[in-house]
């Protein structure tokens, strides 16, 4: 039953998505790429890029994309339903008991414990993306003979714009895509 498996997998991801939108990335990489093999690392990277340019949260984008690939439109529905089901139940339950839990030290303690872990997980997913960008599908290698000499300056330029000038992320991504397109024309022509 692929539909049930899709629902269950995204239910787990939805349940563990704590501490901000980007935590979905390491969870997806572990569950979808490394354990289920539903996406390749390249497809995962494409999905992350495309998600920055489309409306709505990354988690829904990812669920729809993976669901479509594994089970068509019905798969997309199951994946999306799975990823929002846990929060639906928990949020509604807590809305009833809100006053009680408002200042509970234990809940805040959980968040203190999670913060460094979530930062580490996102760092890991980010580093995997950088390795893929620099070395392509072959993975990290030193000395970096097979490094993509165009990707490194493009990455550096984007990071500089984002950090130094707080440049709009969507425009940065679009510019990077156009730069890639220009490089493609140049390489095809030369």
């Amino acid at each position: 039953m692929i539909y049930l498996e899709i629902f269950g997998t995204f239910f787990q991801i939805g349940l563990c998505s704590v501490g901000g939108g980007y935590v979905i990335l390491p969870l997806m990489q572990s569950q979808i790429v490394e354990s289920k093999h539903w996406l390749t690392m390249r497809e995962f990277a494409d999905l992350v890029s495309l998600s920055q340019m489309t409306p709505g949260p990354i988690a829904i984008n990812a669920a729809t994309f993976v669901g479509m690939k594994m089970g068509g439109p019905m798969g997309a529905v199951m994946a999306t339903a799975g990823s929002v089901a846990p929060s639906c139940v928990i949020v509604l339950a807590l809305a009833h008991f809100y006053q009680k839990y408002k200042n509970l030290g234990r809940i805040q303690g959980i968040f203190r414990g999670l913060r460094p872990g979530v930062a580490a997980l996102i760092a890991s997913a980010g580093l995997s993306m950088i390795v893929l960008t620099f070395w392509g599908g072959e993975g990290f290698a030193w000395p970096p003979q097979n490094i993509d000499i165009l990707a490194v300056p493009l990455f550096a330029a984007c990071l500089f714009l984002l950090r130094r000038f707080k440049f709009n992320p969507i425009l940065t991504m679009l510019g990077a895509g156009l730069a890639g397109l220009a490089a493609g024309f140049f390489q095809a022509g030369g």
């Binding site: 993306m129 493009l154 990455f155 990071l159 992320p169 991504m173 510019g175 990077a176 895509g177 156009l178």
Partner: peptide
Amino acid sequence: GMQAGAAALLA
């Protein structure tokens, strides 16, 4: 190209 941008965004 977008992937290089997304990697920078994550960084």
